[in-house]
Design a protein around this nucleic acid. Structure first.
Length: 551
RNA sequence: GCGCCCGUAGCUCAGUCCGGAUAGAGCGCUGGCCUGCGGAGCCAGAGGUCCUGGGUUCAAGUCCCAGCGGGCGCGCCA
């Protein structure tokens, strides 16, 4: 392309330009227009002061000959459309078959170590639907980064600091339930955690330890309760997340950051660097010097460090471990935390332009039941837990559904519908397509079809039906899509893509009989089915959804 | 009041980063297709002020400005 423009400029057909502006070469919106299209002539119209159609003409006249290009057309207002020979489609099919599980994988990350941290809930209750979204997102992002060549670690940060308000409150709730179970008439804290699971935890403690804690001083008793509950809850979180298909490499405790002295050292470091000042009996950090909207307290009047302080310590700990970059997946209710974290990291010269900490914010999930929005509050005990969700619709549907929209979009789940109509979830449509691919191979084997041993060397030029070409095209797009989804931290692109692949496969399947009389054609079609199967398998795997061979 | 996200088909949402041709999908709706490798499927159709108003541009769902509507933040909570 550049050659053609250069040539045209040399010959004086086009005015000379120093630099070419950015232009695009991409598949056009309508497939009839061709395989690829470029807007270069229109982009050049302004600097050259010429009509885009004339420029396009000049470029096309000077295009170097190329075996891959079958036809070049100019369309108003100035697009240049290329129709390629089908070689590139055939290459994609071959690549899918040959690379199999590695199809769509890249080496962009060059084995560099990165980290994705997600879910990271308070150990004060079951994981709920919002955590499920964070989980599905974080895990899929980790899969994607791994697919483009990074060495990815998954991390869970346990917000378990005993002096925190939430944890104190939780301890009081447990204490009240414990005493109530033993027959004491004690009031339940007004702001306490009202969920039934608190009663169950208290019951477990009663069963294991009887009335051993009744005589303890309340403060000690509450801490003991929380420690007992913490172990149970974290273990439970771990097992539910595994059920959801997520296995972490690291579990980091916030309390440990305190116990190991990291929080204290971090505060010292900030002081030494002159980034702090005292006001109103508290210690503040000058985050506004680094782009934050207001300064932040890092040590309270009471002497207790804030969550912000421990989070800086936590990110320093991440930094120590040598990650090329880290991804934090947070709910929208934490978005206010983003500018101050970046400010802190800039102040500590860990990053300059938000290139090290990548925060993915997902909008909260709204549940609709009986036509009404359900307000979720752990303390009020209105919880739809990840367990419940998995019981109702299963891992695959849950993950697919949670990854169907961009993280930016609010996600509505009608619970009645999710339960009742789970069979209509698109995940089944996609999985069915994959199972069908497998089924065709099973059938071929059963019949000992002569095309079966041939398909790896099939003559793909026999694939001439429109449905075959469309299917090949979508398969050919897969590697670029993986890259894009990984770089944008946007797994939903894959969800949308998988539906399209399934769609085109079903079209093809209806129109083209795979196992037929013509052995060469059957072999070519088997190759296409295999490539489809690989593409669907890899897409679903990246999403964390299983790709069943039979349903 | 300030900040972030969202506003596109009856519903739920892609597409906006990086402007481009006739704005897409799923569900729902209407009408067709079961003697074929899996009907958990396929085909056809109806359905749109891309929230509003300005601006930039040859070209705006996309960029800029001002509004409106919804969500979430703005704590010495996490």
């Amino acid at each position: 392309m550049k050659e053609a423009i250069g040539e045209a400029m040399e010959r004086g057909v086009l005015p000379k330009q120093q630099d070419l502006p950015n232009f695009t070469i991409e598949p056009p919106p309508q497939e009839e227009f061709g395989d690829f299209a470029t807007n270069i002539a229109m982009v050049l119209a302004r600097p050259m002061g010429k009509n885009p159609m004339q420029i396009a003409n000049a470029i096309v006249q000077h295009l170097p000959p190329n075996d891959l290009v079958q036809k070049v057309e100019i369309a108003p207002p100035g697009f240049i459309n290329f129709v390629l020979t089908d070689d590139w489609l055939h290459e994609a099919v071959k690549e899918a078959i040959e690379r199999d599980e590695k199809f769509g994988h890249w080496d962009i990350g060059q084995g560099k170590k990165v980290q994705v941290e997600f879910v990271s809930a308070n150990p004060t209750g079951p994981l709920q639907i919002g955590n499920a979204r964070g989980g599905a997102l974080g895990d899929a992002i980790a899969n994607l980064l791994s697919a483009i060549g990074y060495k990815v670690e998954r991390e869970y940060y346990i917000n378990d600091v005993t002096m925190s308000t939430q944890v104190q409150n939780f301890g009081e709730s447990l204490e009240a339930r414990y005493l109530q179970l033993l027959g004491y008439d004690v009031p339940f804290p007004e702001e306490g955690y009202k969920g039934e699971y608190v009663v169950e935890l208290a019951r477990e403690i009663v069963n294991e330890y009887g009335n051993a804690f009744v005589e303890l001083p309340p403060e000690e008793r509450r801490r003991k309760f929380f420690e007992l509950a913490r172990e149970k809850i974290v273990a439970h979180h771990k097992s539910v997340l595994e059920r959801f298909g997520i296995v972490y490499d690291n579990w980091v405790s916030e309390q440990w950051l305190y116990d190991s002295g990291r929080v204290a050292r971090t505060i010292e470091l900030l002081k030494q660097k002159g980034l702090t000042y005292e006001a109103e009996e508290a210690l503040w950090m000058r985050t506004t010097d680094f782009g934050d909207l207001k300064d932040e307290v890092i040590v309270r009047r009471t002497g207790a460090p804030t969550y912000f302080a421990s989070d800086i310590a936590y990110h320093l700990y991440k930094r120590e471990r040598g990650y090329a970059f880290v991804v934090d997946v947070w709910g929208a209710d934490h978005h206010g935390h983003v500018p101050r974290m970046h400010a802190a990291l800039k102040a500590l010269e860990i990053e300059r332009d938000e290139e090290w900490l990548k925060v993915v914010i997902y909008q909260l999930v709204r549940l609709v039941k009986g036509g009404e929005t359900v307000r979720l509050s752990k303390r009020a005990g209105e919880i739809v837990s990840l367990d419940d969700l998995l019981d109702w619709i299963g891992k695959d549907a849950a993950r697919f559904f949670l990854l169907m929209r961009s993280a930016d979009a609010h996600l509505d789940i009608d619970l009645d519908l999710a339960v009742k109509q789970s069979q209509e979830n698109p995940v089944y449509y996609v999985q069915y397509a994959h199972a069908r691919c497998c089924s065709i191979f099973r059938e071929a084997e059963k019949r000992q079809h002569p095309a079966l041993p041939e398909y790896r060397n099939a003559d793909l030029r026999l694939l001439t039906d429109e449905t075959e070409r469309k299917l090949m095209k979508v398969i050919a797009r897969f590697p670029e899509l993986v890259k894009e989804a990984a770089e944008k931290f946007s797994p939903h692109l894959l969800t949308q893509f998988s539906i399209q692949v399934a769609d085109r496969f079903h079209d093809f399947y209806e129109r083209c009989r795979v196992l037929g009389e013509d052995v060469k054609l059957s072999a070519a079609r088997l190759a296409l089915v295999k490539a489809t199967q690989v593409t669907l398998h890899n897409t679903l795997t990246l999403l964390g959804v299983s790709a069943p061979e039979a349903m």
